[in-house]
Computed example of a mutant assay.
Amino acid sequence: MVQYFRPPLDASFAALSDTTRRGVLEQLGRSDASITELAEKFHMTLTGMKKHVGVLEQAGLVTTEKVGRVRTCKLGLRRLEEEAAWIERYRQLWDARFDELDKVVEELKRKEKADGRKKRK
């Protein structure tokens, strides 16, 4: 198996790309939960939930602690600032592009309206 370095953004966005994993984060935002509780809540097998929790753990979004036979999950210490900053840069870029597109559309509407008046005369 080939091992390679995954930048933190890749791991975070990969973890967040799945509906179940986002749901797990929402659930853990309300209270810590065991893997068994999470599996039951999401109607999954323990094995399936362990895999989801593992992806979240690798991304630093969740931590787990095993006490006896129970593995408890809680939100990790990462606050997603780097991911939010990356998204914000692109949001600003797209906002600027849409503002420019709005200007072009308004100019075309003005020209169309002016051309319509000229043709009626």
Score class of each variant (00 low, 15 high):
Gln3Ile: 04
Tyr4Asp: 06
Phe5Met: 03
Arg6Tyr: 14
Pro7Arg: 13
Ser12Lys: 02
Ala15Cys: 04
Leu16Pro: 07
Ser17Thr: 02
Asp18Gln: 07
Arg21His: 07
Arg21Pro: 05
Gln27Ser: 15
Gly29Cys: 14
Arg30Val: 15
Ala33Ile: 00
Ala33Gly: 04
Ile35Asn: 00
Glu37Met: 12
Leu38Cys: 05
Leu38Pro: 02
Met44Trp: 01
Leu46Cys: 00
Val53Cys: 03
Gly54Ser: 08
Gly54Thr: 03
Leu56Pro: 04
Glu57Pro: 01
Gln58Val: 00
Ala59Met: 02
Ala59Val: 00
Gly60His: 06
Gly60Val: 06
Val62Ala: 12
Thr63Tyr: 02
Thr63Gln: 13
Glu65Cys: 04
Val70Ala: 15
Cys73Ile: 04
Cys73Ser: 14
Cys73Arg: 01
Leu75Tyr: 06
Gly76Cys: 09
Leu77Lys: 10
Leu77Met: 12
Leu77Asp: 12
Leu77Ser: 15
Arg78Asn: 10
Arg79Thr: 12
Glu82Thr: 10
Glu83Met: 08
Trp86Tyr: 13
Ile87Leu: 13
Tyr90Asn: 09
Tyr90Asp: 07
Tyr90Gln: 10
Arg91Val: 14
Gln92Cys: 03
Gln92Tyr: 08
Asp95Met: 13
Asp95Cys: 08
Asp102Tyr: 07
Val105Gly: 00
Val105Cys: 05
Glu106Gln: 13
Lys113Val: 09
Lys119Met: 09
Lys119Arg: 10
Lys121Glu: 14
Lys121Asn: 10
